[in-house]
Every structure is written in structure tokens, then in C-alpha cells.
Computed example of a mutant assay.
Amino acid sequence: MKSLLYCCLLWLCLLPLVHAADLRIDLGHGAKTWSTAELLSRADATTVTITDDVAFRRPMHYRAVPLLALLPGLSAGQHLQFVAVDGFAAEIPATTILNQQDSQAWLAVEDPARPWPALPENAKGAGPFYLVWTHPQGVHVSPEQWPYQLAVIRTLSGVDARFPVIVPAVGATAEVRRGFDVFKRTCFACHTMNGEGDSKLGPDLNLPYSPIEYLRADLLRGYIRNPQSLRRWPEARMIGFPTQESLSDTDLDAVLAYLRYMAKHKAAH
């Protein structure tokens, strides 16, 4: 009994160490690794209130660091990728982070001594690092641009340069090109297109078939708004875009136009 009690006490003592983690930031001039303890002890770490948190769907309070303070020398021409431990890869242009509006990006840091609550759809939680925004509406931040379980932040060429096979041709309509822009900041964080992309969480959206080819437009529209409306699957990772703020009808129409366009421009794989 004493040995069992000793093991339990030892486990409780070591628990914070188990949850401590590192974040790697690479802006192309030498990578920097930050530990949980280093970030929490920074002089600019402060308590941030997020009134409408994307992951938790309720107001949340975080100990956080201004993201720009961790990205010295970031310029408007750069492009950032935020990679989570599960392979989720959010694409965010530097201009979104450098904006002069009220919007501000923060790196929320989970304190091992005060862990965050469980997520509604992900038992592994949002920690140890989570990109959150105050006043995100100022620069139209997409729900997919709130990546959690962060492991790496790095600069890369933009999506158009890295994956030219998914870029609409010059003659594509304005709606298709708008749909491509929306696709990059929403769908591309989980899905590939024509076999191209860094994230592998969801299926490819064009090979061998585009969803536009096997789902009625109204069903696909409903699925994007609420994935459970098509298939009741409690373990599903896709949370959908239920509101006009998360994805307007105009942007949703544009995404469907892009999918229809790409269904006629499949790449050989």
C-alpha cells in the first residue's frame, strides 16, 4: 500500500513535466525553440480574454505572449505556416499578423500547473500552444487560422508558389479566384487538392473525385456548415462553418465555384 501511495505521489509531482513542451519558430535565419517555462516567464506575458473562442466556443482567459514579439524582423512579404502536432497546417500571410487594425494575434501558453479544460471534439486538448486573436473580425480571421496544439511556426513561400497545380488559370472567373483564396485559409489547413498540400488530416478534395461530383450542392453546402448534418459521426474532426462570420454565403458560393472548376482540372497522380 505504501509503495502504491508513493508511486501516485511521484506521478502527481511529475505531471507538470509531462505537459511541458517546446515550440519551434523558424523565420529563415536560424530556428529558435521556446519552452513552456520560458514563454510563461517572459516580461510581455499577460492575461488575455477571448470573448468568443473558436476552439472552446465560449469566453476563455489565457496567459499569452504577443505573437509579433516572437517573430522579430517579420515583413509584409512573408508567409507563415503554423503546424500542429497532428499535422494540421494553417496558412497565414504575414500581412494578417502585421495589420494596423484592432486585431492582434497572441500565442496562448498552457501552464502545466493550470491545464486548460477539455475541448468539445478533441480529447487531447488545445495545448500546449494555441494561436488566438483579439478582435479577429478586423482582418477577417478564419476559424482555421486559430491553430491549437502548435508545435512549429515557420516561414515558407506562399501557397500559390509552392503548389501551382491548385492555382486557377488566368482566365478563371473572379468568383473562382475568390473561392481559391477562401479555400487557402479554410479547407487547405486539413485537406489536399490534386494531391498537393502539407496537411493530411482530411481527404483530398479533387482526387479521385471532388465532393461536388458526388454530392448535391445543397447537401455539400449543408455539410460545410455542419458536417453532422450529412453523417452523424461523434468522432469527426471537422467542426464546420455554421455562421456568416465564420464563412459568409458569398464565400461559400465561391468555394463551391472553385471546387467545380478544379473538378475539370484534375492533376495526374
Rank of each mutant, 00 (worst) to 15 (best):
T96W: 11
Q81V: 15
A84K: 05
E91I: 04
L80K: 02
L70D: 11
F82C: 10
L68F: 06
E121R: 13
D102C: 09
Q137C: 06
L131H: 07
A76W: 06
L70C: 11
A113R: 08
A84L: 03
K124C: 05
H135P: 03
A118K: 05
A76G: 07
K124L: 13
L71F: 00
G87V: 05
Q81R: 15
Q104T: 07
P93Q: 07
A108R: 00
L74V: 07
E91Q: 13
K124D: 13
R114C: 13
G127S: 11
G87M: 12
F82N: 11
P128T: 09
G77R: 03
H140A: 13
T96G: 14
S75R: 14
A89M: 08
W133Y: 09
W133Q: 07
E110Y: 12
T134A: 01
W133I: 06
D86W: 03
A84D: 03
P117I: 10
W116K: 05
L107S: 01
Q101E: 15
N122F: 15
G73P: 10
W116H: 05
I97Y: 00
I97D: 00
V85A: 14
I97P: 01
T96E: 15
L107D: 04
I92T: 02
Q78V: 09
G73L: 07
G125Y: 05
V85N: 14
Q81G: 14
V85C: 11
A90L: 05
S103A: 12
P115F: 10
G87S: 03
H79L: 04
H140Q: 12
A69K: 02
L70V: 11
G73N: 06
H135T: 08
A123I: 11
E110V: 14
W106I: 11
W133E: 04
L70P: 07
G127I: 07
P112C: 02
E121N: 13
A89N: 15
A123M: 04
A89W: 01
P93R: 08
D111H: 01
T95H: 01
A94H: 05
A90M: 06
K124H: 11
E91T: 02
D111G: 08
E121D: 15
H79F: 12
W116V: 11
Y130A: 02
K124A: 14
G125V: 11
W133S: 04
L68W: 08
A94C: 06
F88L: 12
Q100D: 15
V132F: 10
G87I: 04
N122W: 15
P136F: 02
H140R: 08
Q137E: 15
D102H: 10
A108Y: 03
A90S: 13
I92C: 04
P72C: 05
A105C: 07
A90N: 06
A118N: 01
Y130M: 03
A126M: 02
A126V: 07
G125D: 08
A118Y: 00
